[in-house]
């Protein structure tokens, strides 16, 4: 393909695509800072004549986005830590211990990855209501503290760590658990960061599950709160865009800081097939 297109054609094509990708974000930010009379101006006003930060305070006055933010943060942080702990322990067992039924258990777990999560929605809802967990933080967090995909990814990584290391540790009188914690985990840092980042993104943006298991406003996460806000704010697009900005910006910041790990993680999930 290399000589088919000139360098400048490639740049022009990529730039057109990039504008198409960025436009919604630019339009969101621009609208979120406009005074109401500029929002529906035709032709569109691209740069607000005055930066109207009031839209953000007004959006906060209509719906408790600060509360939604804290909820999203609690759910994301705890379920990510939970997933890391269960994943590290399980991946260690699958990569370093030989036990009866190992292959069967591993095959069953991999098999569950073929079932779409939407199929689990109804029975999980019934389970949670039997536990009396509907409309609680547990309902938002506990079902998401383990992941077969993460276990699989980390197991692959652990299998690549030389066996000699654990022999040496054993000779030095280090217990297996300490070995896992002080040797394997630090070695697996890149894989763990990848697992954690993909989890954070999924958890922060999750919608259908939190929509179904929460009823009260106090327990809404950001996406659920934002969705409810579309009816609460009416047709005030400057407020809607301000609220959307509040939901989107934390993940954009995280992405700009950690994009190396996020892209590597996505690429790796694809190469394995």
């Amino acid at each position: 393909m290399r000589s088919a297109l000139s360098k400048s054609t490639i740049y022009i094509l990529l730039a057109i695509g990039a504008v198409f990708m960025l436009l919604p974000f630019v339009w969101m930010l621009s609208t979120s800072l406009k005074a109401p009379n500029e929002v529906m101006a035709m032709p569109p006003v691209w740069i607000p004549s005055e930066l109207n930060w009031d839209n953000f305070t007004e959006a906060l006055a209509v719906a408790p986005f600060d509360r939604y933010f804290v909820n999203s943060l609690i759910v994301t942080v705890i379920s990510t830590i939970g997933e890391l702990v269960t994943t590290i322990l399980a991946a260690y067992a699958f990569s370093r211990i030989n036990f009866f039924g190992k292959n069967i258990i591993f095959a069953v777990l991999l098999g569950t990855m073929m079932v779409p999560g939407e199929v689990l929605l109804i029975p999980n809802f019934v389970t949670l209501s039997n536990l009396g967990w509907i409309d609680t933080y547990q309902a938002l967090i506990v079902p998401w503290t383990a992941s077969v995909f993460a276990i699989f990814l980390l197991r692959q990584f652990f299998l690549g760590v030389p066996k000699e290391l654990s022999f040496a540790a054993k000779v030095d009188g280090c217990s297996e658990f300490r070995f896992l914690w002080y040797v394997m985990v630090p070695l697996a840092k890149p894989a763990l960061i990848t697992v954690a980042l993909l989890k954070i993104i999924n958890s922060w943006n999750a919608f259908l599950w939190p929509l179904i298991v929460t009823n009260s406003q106090e327990l809404r996460t950001l996406p659920v709160g934002l969705s409810a806000f579309t009816t609460e704010a009416g047709i005030k697009y400057e407020l809607l865009m301000a609220a959307s900005t509040m939901v989107v910006v934390p993940m954009l910041i995280l992405f700009f800081i950690m994009q190396k790990y996020i892209i590597a993680g996505v690429a790796r999930s694809g190469l394995k097939g």
Partner: peptide, 18 residues
Amino acid sequence: RTIYFLPFVTSVVAVAIV
């Protein structure tokens, strides 16, 4: 690559509203 990847990390609900 960063620009093309941006939508992936953002909330579906938020971008759908945009």
